[in-house]
Simulated scan of single mutants.
Amino acid sequence: MNPVVFVDGDQGTTGLQIVAQLQQRDDVSLLTLPPAQRKDADRRAEAINRCDVAILCLPDAAAREAAAMIDNPAVRVIDASSAHRTDPAWVYGFPEMSAGQAGRIQAARRISNPGCYPTGAVALLRPLVDAGLLPVDYPIVINAVSGYSGQGRAGVEAYEGPGAAQAPAFQVYGLALEHKHVPEIQLHAGLSERPVFVPAYGAFRQGIVLTIALQLRLLPEGVSGRRLHEALHAHFAGQPHVQLMPLQQAAALEQLDPQRHNGSNAMSLAVFDNPRHGQVLLAAVFDNLGKGASGAALQNLDLLLAA
């Protein structure tokens, strides 16, 4: 019998993509609730306790509520919200983050799916911190631009609904420097100091470009762009969903397309090196609804099903 996967909250941008992909598979039995039952606590509790794996695609408060409904110890959970991403009782669902992380996910009962922006930031920072090339107290500044679907259904409505003509072409937000992804980035990147995070939305549906600038004079002696690239290469070698651009290819680029990996679970990383000025730019490109959300959830599901 196929394992039963229950998607709770299947009408949001992430849930819709997960359901669409699971409907094409013959190795799982998909369980969802009809519209009239989606807010019925008893029906939700019944569904979540009779599945093998629950994927929560809910606002934070509702995700905590759903997790609290589980009294069947056999149920395994992947939470796509930000409710549990810094909770030590939950395993962080980024398989490529560090050695052994995929195994920890595979053995876990509770997995917290990474946020879209943190996926790129942690991918770039954690390997360099672990390699001793990036001080844990480096004054990190992260800039990122996401497609408007990063706002969820409200963003899609704003850019694709009746008022789409008035939607801004570009908007920077999070100006109070209190974005909810910052604690997640700091914890899982291994930083001792809070990074500055400056997010933005563009007038395209999905995709992310995230960049982090580094001054070589603030890094340990002898660290260069090439050494940073070598560390990332060593870390992600053999990882099918993360590709590191060769230095020569990066040097020839003049722009980055945030939509390059749309519709996939792929992520590209790059190191742009300017030895003359002693500066390096780290970059990640991926789909905020793919590797940044539904793709990552399905990657974690596959780890659980293979256990």
Rank of each mutant, 00 (worst) to 15 (best):
V7N: 02
D8W: 15
D10I: 03
T13I: 13
V19S: 03
Q21F: 08
L22A: 02
R25Q: 09
L31A: 15
P34L: 07
A36E: 15
A47S: 11
D52P: 12
D52W: 07
A54D: 09
L58I: 07
D60K: 13
D60N: 15
A62G: 05
A68G: 10
S81D: 11
A83S: 13
D87M: 10
V91Y: 09
V91R: 13
G93H: 02
F94W: 04
S98K: 13
R104S: 11
I105V: 09
S112E: 09
Y117S: 15
Y117C: 15
G120V: 10
V122Y: 11
L124C: 06
R126F: 10
D137V: 04
G150N: 13
Q151H: 12
R153K: 13
V156T: 11
Y159M: 12
A164N: 04
Q166G: 07
F170A: 06
Q171P: 00
L175G: 00
E178W: 05
H181S: 14
P183G: 12
E184Q: 08
L187A: 14
L187Y: 00
S192K: 08
R194D: 00
P195T: 03
P195H: 03
P199K: 05
Y201K: 03
F204C: 02
G207L: 00
G207H: 02
L219N: 11
R227F: 01
H233Y: 12
H235L: 04
P246S: 08
L247N: 03
L253Y: 00
E254L: 11
Q255S: 15
Q259S: 14
H261M: 06
N274K: 09
G278E: 09
Q279W: 02
L282S: 12
A283H: 10
F286T: 11
L303M: 03
L305G: 02
